[in-house]
Design a protein around this nucleic acid. Sequence first.
DNA 1: CTGAAAGCGCTAACAG
DNA 2: CTGTTAGCGCTTTCAG
Lengths: 354, 354
Amino acid sequence: MLEKYEKPCYNDDTVTDYRGGNMKAPTIYDIAKKLNISVATVSRAMSPPGTVVISEASRLKVLQAAKEMGYRPNAQARALITRKTRHIGLFTPGILERTGLHFARMLQAVENVTRTNGYHLVVYGELDPADVEGRLDGLIILAHPNEAVPIMENLDMSSVHVWPIFAEAKVPSISWDDAEGAYCACKYLADMGHKKIAALFGDIVDDVALTPKIAGFRRAIDELGVSSVELFGDKYPDQFENGYALALDLLKSSDKFTAIFARNDLLAVGAMKALRANGLSVPDEVSVIGYNDTSVATCSDPGLTSIRTPIGETGELAANRLISIIEHKEMAFDDVVLPVSLTIRESCASPKRV
Amino acid sequence: MLEKYEKPCYNDDTVTDYRGGNMKAPTIYDIAKKLNISVATVSRAMSPPGTVVISEASRLKVLQAAKEMGYRPNAQARALITRKTRHIGLFTPGILERTGLHFARMLQAVENVTRTNGYHLVVYGELDPADVEGRLDGLIILAHPNEAVPIMENLDMSSVHVWPIFAEAKVPSISWDDAEGAYCACKYLADMGHKKIAALFGDIVDDVALTPKIAGFRRAIDELGVSSVELFGDKYPDQFENGYALALDLLKSSDKFTAIFARNDLLAVGAMKALRANGLSVPDEVSVIGYNDTSVATCSDPGLTSIRTPIGETGELAANRLISIIEHKEMAFDDVVLPVSLTIRESCASPKRV
DNA sequence: CTGAAAGCGCTAACAG
DNA sequence: CTGTTAGCGCTTTCAG
């Protein structure tokens, strides 16, 4: 009976535990041989229940033997024929600089979803579409449109784009509402009674990712009838230092602002430091509100009131959607814009300074 | 001439650019057919120069055709036969909670090294050795020994362990010198004139990862002839809150400390906040030194003097060493302990309070 | 130096 | 429901 298998069987019949020795890993041929059945049946037993025709008895018998023998399906052989690698990529250029403090939160969410669904997450700080072709089932692009678009255009696989602004209609996108966030921050300040709000935008004006925040801020200013000063520019590579420098500029001018809205938390805490260095207390004399609600907001003193952006949720959603697309549960989906919220701490109060 | 190839050729002769149409990707058979040579020669041309016998003329001819046809080697087919996947894993449980603020720095370094060497980095927040078997060429284990050891014992591949303490002699390890770090912090304080130093250790005493810090701290205390108070316990899940609470406990006691050494930066800034809340100024009345030199140290006010641990360097070294092992350039290497350093900011000064 | 042929371990028709 | 068989795309002896 055993002779009919032409494929070589490397392991003899005494194999009970692959880990025990240093022989080659058992294959479906070894299982088939041991059970006197065909490799096809073994293969069928290995595929997810319900996706293939096989008797319950066979499935159980094979699974049992496989367990005893320490069998592990060979991912490469499977991928070679199914054309699915069960790898999902995450492209995130400038892990530290750009995505900064958000990154761990995002990665954790994405990794959790991919792993739970049986995918392996491959992380790239740089990416050439050519050398991931055929290695990935799909890609999550966590990048500024400037970097994302060239990738998307040459990519031969499913992908989703995550960024607080839409990049392209061609690729499904997940983002969060930065216009609303900036509006909300500004309104919070105005509602407290602030009449002149300074905005620390930092980066260069034509940065597409900054646009929604500027728009939201300006809309609030107009609607709420308060006045504003907008500060741009980033002299230093470090956001904290930029916040410090920008706030200093602000103080040198004669603007009678009583509140500062910062484009991100680092800029905000930098500004707070400059304020204190100039004898101004936060929030008694000047209120400061940050953006992103990162760990620096939690541990600054006073605690920084900040707009919370749904980083983790975004990552989770992106991963889930990508998997749906890959598995054809969902061929396409509408772009999603997640809401932001306000985390109130101690850095804002009604204005006392005039 | 062409009939001799039994393997099917899916692409006709007009193929010039795979991207142009939606036919299947070209294989070595397509190249061989076009060039009227054997697939063996094509295969040889694809392997790294010098590793295989082939005439320079053939190699160039094949490479040229491959480029024109948009050929990409199939990673799975190659892996199936070579038994090398060119994937390296990074196991890092509790990406956010545990590895916290370091994580991005470490990941960036590791990703950079792996990518530069032609490897793809797969990240795992949880890992069962069974389901990475055969998918990875090696694994970087960035985990507390409690989590690392069970993994290492069941792992069937090369691995290196990264943690500020040795876990096992069996696996090469890279770490940094926390004993020296704690000593150095304490000495810095003592040299400034502090006579009683409080240590905020936070976590439970028997945590193996804490041991070197405690040992280093105590050695400094003994050698330098200063006195100390050690505080343990973590009431809250959040380190910042723990720092705050621990400092409060300290203030309630009658200890006449003038300086605080904190086990990590978050604990330190939490303590600074508690100090200020009690009307004590840093560093005028109490000096505070942190550990790890993370982003919160940079942006706290006053800037937190902190022990810098070489996270990025560690990741880089770990990845390089692992690759050396995988490629048999280095069969084994000595465990490495990287030095730490002191980053001086504004949170420490000579004691004025008595 | 090059070609023919044998697989790597697995899945998927296609028969039975 | 199960077995046979033909590959997936590539590397690697082994001849020539």
